[in-house]
Each structure stands twice: as structure tokens, then as C-alpha cells.
Amino acid sequence: METWLCVRQVREALTSTDLRVEDLWVRYYAMGGTASWFELEACLAGVLVLDGGECRILVDAANALLSQARSGTRVDRCADTSPERLLSGAGHGLGAAGAFLLTPREREAERVDAVVRTGLLDTGPEDRFDRISRQAQHRFQVSSVMITVIDDDRCFGKSVIGPLRRSVPRTVSLSTAALHRAGPVVVEDASADERFRENPFVRGDPHVRFFAGYPVRGPLGWLVGSLCVADQVPRSFSTADVHALRALALDVEDEVNGPRALSEL
């Protein structure tokens, strides 16, 4: 089946069963999908065309949710097609929703500009962020929590609880993982994970083992940082925990984008 027809079926299935796009994206991501939340919304709106592989993951995620909801509706799988290509640079000024129209370098430049616009880099602790960090520490019973903003070369901790450095190079920051994935990152035992076991904060102080992070969006929807929780012992992290972490990350977004954030130009 043509990709656009599959996506239309997914959209209609969501509407007919009252399933949420949020739940679809979480399931799609867990099954290996790589499109961001904004890109998935653009796809469902008919603005962005996913390639065949991503479309099949989307359909499988939708069918899994439909089965869980005991719905008799099913979505047919997509044919293997390539995404449409649009002119580079056409997405300037559209924010993260237009990210797929930009080159990787252009996307990063727009993202870093959004980080600067938050006005949070190199500023002191504030209770409005520390309060959320304390809530996260209590909810997940971890030793460390960090709310970060991430520019082009470093990760700055706007709020830090535990034995974590406030400012570290982006290349070694575990917080950057959530930024790269544009979704939740859960590492139950970093010492056994080939992506992180050589990280200096895993091999040395503070000897991180468990880590979970959720990205935070700033001006125009760009990813500007993350909310992360960490501990020195391995542990599991349930779907309910992921939803709770996302809820707290949305609280951080409310502070980043609220009345005290710099005006968007």
C-alpha cells in the first residue's frame, strides 16, 4: 500500500478509537522508530513523508495499540518507498516542525540559537527548576538529577542534585543522548551498555550505572536540553516511569517557555 494511504489509515484509526498521538509515538520509538515527535505529527498531518521502513514501524506501533485497546481495526503495512525531498533551507523560521526541510548543519544552528534565546546558559540556580529536580529525585528515588541546556559544545546544568558536574563537554555528557534521540533514553546498566561503558563518568566518578533522560523543548519547539535522572546502581525503568519522566520534562518546558523566558524574535 502507498505510504500516504497507510498514514491516513493510522490517522483514522487514532480518531475512531480515541488513542493519543503521544502513546503512538512512545510505542513507535520503543519499536525502533527514529522520527521525532514533531516529525511524526508532521507525517500524520500530511506534511512529511516517512520512508517505507519508518512507515512500517509506525503501522506496527499503531496496530499494537489497537490490539491493546481490543479494537477490531487494523492498518495495512506500507510499501518500501523513499521520503520526498524538499529544498534545503525552506524550513527556516518554521521551528522544529520544519526541521526536516533543513540540512543537519542548519538544524543545529537553529537549535543552538533557540538555546541562547532561553537565557539560561551560565545562570545560577533557580527554585522553579530546583523544585522539579527535587520532585524527580523523590519520584524515582535516585541519587542524582540534572536539568540541562546544551549548546554546540557543552552541557550546562541549570539545576543539579547529586555528584554531577554543572558544566561538561557535550561529547562526554550522558544528557546529550536524549537530545540525539529526540525522545526518552533509558540505560539500566551503563557499564554493560556498549554505547556508554567507556564514558568517563561511567568508568570513573561518579560511576553512573543507571541513567534515564527526556528531552526538553524550547523556543519554536527546538530541543534545548534534557531532564535526566541517574544512580550508582543498575535498575529497571517501567513504561509508567517513562511517562512520569515525560510529565516532569513538560513541567521544565513550561518554565523554559513561560513568562520568564526571553521573547522569541
Rank of each mutant, 00 (worst) to 15 (best):
D130S: 14
D130G: 05
R131M: 01
R131N: 13
I132G: 10
I132M: 11
I132P: 09
I132D: 04
Q135S: 11
Q135D: 15
Q135E: 14
A136W: 07
A136C: 11
Q137F: 01
Q137G: 03
F140C: 08
Q141D: 15
S143F: 00
S143L: 12
S144R: 01
S144Q: 07
S144Y: 01
V145R: 04
V145C: 07
V145F: 07
V145N: 01
M146D: 01
I147K: 02
I147H: 02
T148C: 02
T148D: 08
V149P: 02
I150Y: 03
I150D: 11
I150S: 08
I150T: 15
D152W: 04
D152V: 10
D152F: 04
D153W: 05
D153S: 14
R154L: 05
R154G: 11
R154N: 06
R154A: 10
C155H: 06
F156Y: 15
K158P: 06
K158A: 06
I161T: 05
I161Q: 11
I161G: 05
I161Y: 03
I161L: 15
G162I: 07
G162T: 13
G162V: 06
P163W: 03
P163V: 09
L164K: 04
R165M: 13
S167N: 14
S167Y: 00
V168Y: 02
P169I: 10
P169L: 13
P169V: 12
